Amino acid sequence: MSEPSAVLPNVTMIAAVGRNGVIGDGLGMPWHLPEDLRFFKRTTMGHPMVMGRRTFDSMGALPGRRSVVVTRRRDWSAPGVEVAHSLPEALDLVSGAEQVFVVGGGEIYRQAMRYAARLLVTEVDLSPAGSVTFPEIDPSVWVETARDARDGFAWVTWERRA
């Protein structure tokens, strides 16, 4: 298995991010936004999701989506999921999919940033305490292409610049 060397056009990162970059505290999300959870379900349904083990521990395998869990633990397994021991290995497992969603957590997002073609970021109008963050979005690399403002948050689409 070789490491991907460039942006993969079918890879999208999807995350809910506070004003301070926080996405969680290592145990779960610091907010409950039912409308955003419905958006997440609608957007990812039918597509593979790549996530770290702690993210999997917090949400489990979701129906209607293939789950690929990245973990360093060689002995780890869970029903209904595929296991990869690196992000490149996980992306290789789902390489034939029309669309792949990277769903967290912080370390997986940092590693995936170099491969993603698109970011779907829910900008949450809160600055919660938490140790898990989303990587900074560099405007020299990414351009905002859509924004849908809601009450207390906005759905923002970023596309990688050519």
Rank of each mutant, 00 (worst) to 15 (best):
R161N: 05
R147C: 14
F134Q: 10
T12L: 01
R42L: 07
R53Y: 12
P79L: 12
V50Q: 06
I137P: 03
L8A: 12
Q99F: 06
L33I: 15
D151Y: 11
L37Q: 13
A78I: 08
V81R: 01
M45N: 01
V156G: 10
G60W: 09
G28T: 09
R54Y: 04
R38T: 13
G152N: 12
I14K: 05
P128Q: 05
E98W: 06
L62R: 14
A116F: 00
L62T: 13
M49K: 11
E107G: 14
V143S: 15
A116E: 00
A146G: 10
M59P: 14
Y115I: 03
G28L: 00
S127V: 04
R150C: 07
L27D: 12
L27Q: 14
G130H: 06
E35D: 15
R19P: 10
P63K: 08
I23Y: 02
G105K: 00
R161S: 11
S2W: 08
E35C: 07
A146E: 15
E144C: 14
S58H: 03
D151N: 14
L93G: 01
V94K: 07
M113R: 11
W155A: 06
Q111Y: 10
T12F: 09
I23G: 09
E98V: 05
A16V: 04
A97R: 06
P139D: 13
P9F: 08
V69G: 01
R53G: 04
G21F: 07
S86H: 05
S5Y: 11
G96W: 09
V83A: 02
Q99A: 09
A15G: 04
L120W: 10
F153D: 02
A116G: 00
V103C: 13
E82S: 03
M51W: 13
H32F: 11
E123D: 13
F134L: 11
A149W: 06
S131N: 13
W142N: 11
K41Y: 06
E3K: 13
V124W: 02
R54T: 12
G24W: 10
Q99R: 15
M45W: 00
F39Q: 04
D75K: 04
V70I: 15
P63T: 04
A149K: 10
T145E: 07
V141A: 04
A84H: 07
A15Q: 07
T122S: 15
A6F: 08
P9K: 10
R66W: 02
F40D: 12
G46R: 09
W76M: 01
W142K: 09
H85K: 08
V50S: 12
R38K: 14
G64I: 11
R54Q: 13
L119H: 03
L91T: 09
D92A: 14
A84I: 14
S95K: 05
E89I: 03
R118W: 02
R160P: 08
P63C: 02
R110V: 00
V22I: 08
T122E: 12
E3V: 14
R66N: 03
M13H: 05
V50G: 12
R110E: 03
S67W: 01
P139S: 10
W76P: 01
L33K: 05
G46V: 04
S67C: 13
R65L: 07
R42T: 09
E35S: 13
D92Q: 12
S131V: 13
